[in-house]
Design a protein around this nucleic acid. Structure first.
Lengths: 192, 192
DNA sequence: GGTTGTCAATACGCATGCGTATTGTGCGAA
DNA sequence: TTCGCACAATACGCATGCGTATTGACAACC
């Protein structure tokens, strides 16, 4: 993180710097907080220069989400490379507890699902993850319909977990407590 | 629903009318969409009269959330009256699929968890529901820590489900398909 | 039938955000 | 050295939202 801050040291900014700063803002304060003037202040310039890089605020949002989506897909591909489906699911669950930034952005995008630019991105990412889960559950022996439902249940649990922990702080992310929770989730959702 | 619209027929409005209209707006477009001037237009008056009833926009939000919280508690109390814990959990799950408006508001509030007025309300409601779930799981024979984790998992699944269905429309709320999903969730989360 | 209380309209001032237009500046290439 | 490109600052106009101040209207009550 702080990608934006470090670049801000340099005298001049590129489009990539603005995109990184946009993701920082989204992660910290959500999509509605991504506004041109506040972001410009953050990057120590005025908004006058922003419009050299992007036509509109929406263009920046689109570009930033594109970056994030690519990053999210790469992370998925890594896990998908694990052969044993049970091991793959475990790794997926465990990673959810870590990688704060990626999940911060995901959580922020969840809260902006009604936004016309955010929605198609989330639709694609969610569908990929659901397919991923469904396939894994099939490979551990569940029927098609059961695998689909279990995938939906798992994904819903993931989404709700993010919402509750990252936003509400229901539990204060005590690492060992989190680990125990993840173990419970795995033993409940992954058939033996 | 349409509580606001029907009242709008009358010549003069009360604070309760503004609160009902506020909840309508929140349900339909989320907390950020609750603004004085748009709401006034909706109610066919100008904002000049709003400030006779409420000191600030925040005061309206607070009052509206108070109403909702009371309503949510009453709904919970109804289910809590069911003796058999398994039956109680089933009823809870099944109701989630219905009652669109209550859950629309809940979903909207979820997306506004960072708002200082929304947060304490959601914290209370969430804690009550978690306690409710935990107690039910204990009564069907789970240990304290397992019951807690299962309650958290259940609640996260509920929250995620709302987010995905109401906002993303991952599945288009086909009633029979939904029923099957709920059955899967129950058989997965409620121990036999 | 006049007075009062209750709601509503109008008209402000202020802040923030978007997008545009114009001008300025520094660094690398010619 | 100078020219020009790539970024940046300044200064607009416009829209929307908050909150205030003032005046208006209508019904109930005396």
């Amino acid at each position: 993180m702080l990608q934006a801050a470090e670049k801000a040291e340099r005298s001049r900014l590129s489009a990539a710097d603005w995109e990184a700063g946009a993701l920082d803002l989204i992660a910290e304060q959500g999509v509605p907080a991504l506004a041109v003037e506040p972001l410009a202040r953050r990057l120590r310039v005025t908004k006058g220069s922003f419009y050299w890089h992007f036509a509109t605020r929406e263009a920046l949002l689109k570009a930033a989400l594109q970056n994030w989506e690519t990053h999210a897909e790469e992370a998925m591909d890594q896990i998908a490379a694990i052969d044993d489906p049970r091991e793959r699911l475990s790794e997926l669950f465990r990673r959810t507890g870590r990688e704060a930034r990626t999940h911060s952005i995901y959580s922020a995008l969840l809260r902006a699902l009604d936004h016309p630019i955010v929605q198609p991105v989330m639709e694609r990412v969610s569908q990929r993850r659901l397919d991923f889960l469904k396939q894994a559950y099939r490979q551990v022996g569940m029927s098609g319909i059961d695998a689909l439902h279990r995938a939906q249940l798992t994904y819903a649990a993931y989404v709700g977990f993010l919402q509750l922990v990252l936003q509400l702080g229901v539990k204060h992310i005590d690492p060992t407590e989190l680990e125990e929770y993840v173990e419970h989730v795995m033993s409940t959702l992954i058939p033996q």
